[in-house]
């Protein structure tokens, strides 16, 4: 009998955290070993499967932060702690932890893009990521879309966290504008020793990256996490292919020098 990589495993929901109106974080009971930046194929039988990044993990659990946009994500949002759903994976390469070692790191995240980098940031917060410094730039559509508010609060006590929203509201006292603006305003001290991770919607990634390049960050020091339609996660279905590269296999995290070669 060949092992069936499409066969999902059942996992129990330990806890659900509501982040925003449409983003919930599900804490699952599992011993699966995962790396920051990897993703799982999550499914509910008879509804469907969807690739979801691991937003955090720890002893005996992992977190998935899921935005309600369609069939599967809607059905997931209807579940309660104690319910179960199915997972398979982890898939993809994850962030290059070894390359970050002893460097200064800037993370620029747009919207749900904060989810895949959350575990990395938490590792730094918990002193288990060996980097010299961390700076987080996060952009959201509106104050109501801000994810992981308590974490952001907690993190900002330890390292610089800049938050901006596209559209403010009456009670919003923070910044209004795009993440690109935050980057433009940055004063990067050790350009050669700085690594950058950019995660978010396609346009946000495109312009934010260009902004970092303007700041003289080498294209070999910038990492992006791609999002593509995926039906298998294991290099068979072809949906995620760009040229000769499969995002589910060689990605989703790509060095920018490689990413600019991936033409669509």
């Amino acid at each position: 009998m060949i092992r069936n990589p499409y066969m999902p495993q059942e996992a129990e929901i330990l806890k659900i955290f509501q982040e925003t109106d449409i983003n919930y974080t599900f804490r699952l009971k599992t011993d699966l070993k995962v790396k920051s930046g990897q993703f799982l194929e999550v499914s509910i039988p008879r509804i469907g499967e969807a690739p979801i990044s691991v937003s955090d993990f720890g002893d005996g659990y992992l977190d998935l932060t899921i935005r309600k946009v369609g069939r599967v994500t809607q059905a997931l949002h209807n579940l309660q702690p104690g319910d179960k759903f199915f997972i398979r994976g982890p898939y993809g390469n994850g962030f290059p932890i070894d390359k970050l070692k002893d460097r200064r790191l800037i993370v620029a995240a747009g919207g749900t893009g904060l989810a895949p980098v959350k575990s990395l940031i938490n590792q730094y917060y918990n002193d288990s990521l060996e980097i010299k410094s961390l700076q987080l730039l996060a952009g959201f559509k509106s104050p109501g879309d801000i994810l992981f508010s308590s974490e952001l609060e907690k993190w900002s006590k330890k390292f610089p966290v800049e938050i901006t929203v596209d559209r403010g509201s009456e009670n919003w006292k923070g910044r209004v504008g795009l993440v690109t603006k935050l980057v433009a305003d940055l004063d990067i001290s050790e350009v050669e020793n700085t690594m950058v991770i950019v995660v978010g919607p396609p346009l946000m990634m495109k312009f934010t990256t260009q902004e970092f390049v303007k700041k003289k960050i080498s294209i070999g020091n910038i990492y992006l996490s791609f999002e593509r339609k995926m039906s298998c996660g294991i290099g068979k279905c072809g949906h995620c292919k760009i040229d000769d590269t499969y995002v589910c296999l060689e990605g989703p995290v790509f060095e920018y020098s490689k990413a600019i070669q991936l033409l669509d």
């Binding site: 092992r3 294991i234 068979k236 499969y246």
Partner: peptide
């Protein structure tokens, strides 16, 4: 090549 070699897994349905 795609079903049996691409990526870390063989596709069991194809292989069968």
């Amino acid at each position: 090549a795609i079903f049996l070699q691409n990526g870390p897994y063989e596709d069991p349905y194809y292989k069968k």
